[in-house]
């Protein structure tokens, strides 16, 4: 009979995550209501412009996620203790980033159908974005290849540090090459934001809301990963204790 138990899985929420959750709800609530009802139609695009309040924030949050993955990976590689916490943050951030990047591609595709007249074109921005998405899917595959947690952390850190270099290429692709995609509106090359006030406010609120949602998701996910790692580490000890108990009884 088994008497030794694995560590019980407790909740992964903290005061900080609860704060992130509330802030994300408030901000995204405004994006939903403001984006649909309070912001005006665009003079050229009409109602299609409302997709921007999801498309741009999810793209920026995906960039943020991949940068966090890169920074956490660098911290793991360069740190003397090789703390596995950095590796878990890197992995969790990449997972959330891939989800946001998928949302960016889907929302952009819908926006493109309405404004450009097509769901997809192989133009510089879309092509480099698709490549970034696929690269981070590859990063997640590399993380799952097996080996010890340290082996996993070492190889995925190297991939993350290479992959993060793609972000400037994606962002500046509309400037470097001829693209169907428009140039950046908020971080425009000439520094002049050409956007109606309430549109800009809602867009920036969206960036804030999705960023806080990212923080909330990563906090929870990396804690779940920590629990899985702890469970795996203790599983062998539990099994041996069980057998010893069986042998002695």
């Amino acid at each position: 009979m088994t008497t030794t138990e694995l560590p019980a899985i407790k909740g992964v929420g903290t005061q900080a995550t609860r704060l992130y959750g509330v802030l994300a709800l408030i901000a995204l609530g405004w994006v939903l209501v403001g984006g649909l009802f309070f912001t005006p139609e665009d003079v050229v695009q009409g109602d299609a412009v409302r997709i921007m309040y999801v498309h741009v924030p999810t793209a920026w949050t995906a960039y943020l996620a991949f940068i966090v993955t890169g920074v956490a990976s660098a911290c793991w590689l360069l740190g003397k203790k090789h703390s596995m916490g950095f590796d878990r943050v890197a992995g969790a951030s990449a997972e959330v980033g891939v989800a946001f990047m998928a949302l960016t591609l889907i929302s952009g595709s819908l926006w493109g159908r309405i404004t450009w007249g097509t769901f997809w074109v192989w133009d510089p921005r879309l092509t480099t974005t698709a490549f970034l998405f696929v690269t981070y899917l590859g990063y997640l595959a590399v993380r799952g290849l097996g080996g010890s947690p340290h082996q996993r952390a070492r190889r995925s850190s190297v991939v993350a540090l290479l992959a993060v270099l793609e972000i400037p290429l994606v962002h500046f692709s509309v400037v470097l090459w001829r693209s169907l995609h428009q140039e950046a509106s908020v971080l425009s090359p000439d520094g002049d934001i050409k956007m109606d006030g309430i549109m800009l406010f809602t867009l920036l609120f969206g960036v804030f809301g999705f960023s806080v949602l990212f923080a909330w998701l990563v906090s929870h996910r990396q804690r779940i990963m920590a629990m899985h790692d702890a469970q795996r580490a203790s599983a062998l000890e539990v099994a041996m204790a069980d057998r010893l108990q069986e042998a002695s009884s």
């Binding site: 074109v121 879309l126 490549f131 590859g138």
Partner: peptide
Amino acid sequence: KWRYVAMLVVVVSAGGFIVSQFLTSAIDF
């Protein structure tokens, strides 16, 4: 592990396809 290896093969193939599209179409749209 093999599931992730298969995923990696798909990802590398997709990456190769995207790079070819970039070189033939996107770079001079």
